[in-house]
Simulated assay, not measured.
Amino acid sequence: MSKFSEISSKDNNYLKFVDKLQTSAKARSEYNLFVLEGLRICRDAVDCGLSVEYTFVSSSFYERTPEIAESFFEVSKLNYVVKDSLFLKVCDTKSPQGIIVVAQKPSLNSKITENGRYVALDSVQDTANLGAIARTAEALGINGIIINEGCCDPYSPKSLRSSMGTVLRMPILFADDLPRYLNDNNLTAVSFVLDDNAVPIDSIQYLQRDVIVIGNEANGVSTAVKDASRLLATIPMAGKVQSLNAASAAAIAIYDYTKKARL
């Protein structure tokens, strides 16, 4: 049997630390750690080879499935069985499954591959949008997502849930200056904008080094990125609809991009 400690006090420092990581992007960045909640995504983290620092299971989870808890204890540095009422207080979900893992964040320093297909996010702020875009990107064969300084944390609880674990598998690359990053990597931007003068999506002819760019939910693609783009593209809309949310626009753009790339 693997070693574990029991937690029965609300003042436990480890529980306070988990709560801090759950709620603070700054803390996740400072400690380079993030929280995964639920059996499936915790297993995904282990399968992806992430370094697991802590495993927390509720008392009832351990009583029901000791063999599953023990399997996580084997790969985790520190292990805790937590009183049910206390476990609930550090969970981000309304109906927790009884297991939380704290792991090292994946590196954001992946390299661009020669024939890879990429999506760049220009200051996308909604974690649910980022997670949904990542999930769509993986499903349609995108090789990685490029994020800039203005983007939300891809390893927030909401992003993890929305992506269904995709952000653990999908290379996420960080660009402090998106136009410069694209230029340095010999990539060209096809930026999706709300502009009647932009090229309709049906008319786009993609080049091998093109990257789809999706902009901020409120302000769209920044002026700097638009000025550096090879092409400004738009998704024509019927009726009285004037815009799509970032995740919906990205899904349409990525589908068009990958479909034409296969032709």
Rank of each mutant, 00 (worst) to 15 (best):
Q97G: 14
R64S: 11
D153L: 02
F73K: 06
S76E: 07
D92N: 13
A132L: 11
V119K: 06
L121A: 03
Y80P: 08
E63F: 02
Y80K: 11
F87V: 05
D153W: 03
S95E: 14
K94T: 12
I142D: 01
D126A: 10
T93C: 10
E67Y: 10
E70K: 12
A69Q: 06
Q125C: 08
E74C: 02
K94D: 13
E114R: 12
S85F: 05
C151M: 03
C151T: 02
K89D: 15
F73H: 08
E70R: 11
T127A: 11
R64Q: 12
V82W: 06
T65Y: 14
A132E: 13
A120V: 01
V124D: 05
T113D: 06
V102T: 03
F87G: 00
G144S: 04
K105E: 12
N79I: 11
A139C: 12
I112Q: 02
K83T: 08
I142K: 04
C91H: 01
I99N: 02
K105R: 15
P66Y: 01
L88R: 14
N109T: 14
Q104S: 15
I147N: 02
E149M: 12
R64P: 00
L130V: 13
V101H: 04
S123M: 04
K89M: 13
G141C: 03
T136D: 10
A132R: 12
S107L: 10
I147A: 06
C91L: 07
E138G: 13
G131C: 11
F87P: 02
Y80V: 09
L78T: 08
V75F: 11
P96Q: 07
G150D: 01
N109L: 13
S71R: 08
V119D: 08
A103M: 05
A137D: 08
E149V: 13
Y80C: 09
S85Q: 12
E138T: 15
K77L: 13
S85L: 05
Y80N: 09
N109W: 05
S76T: 15
A134V: 12
N109D: 15
I145Y: 06
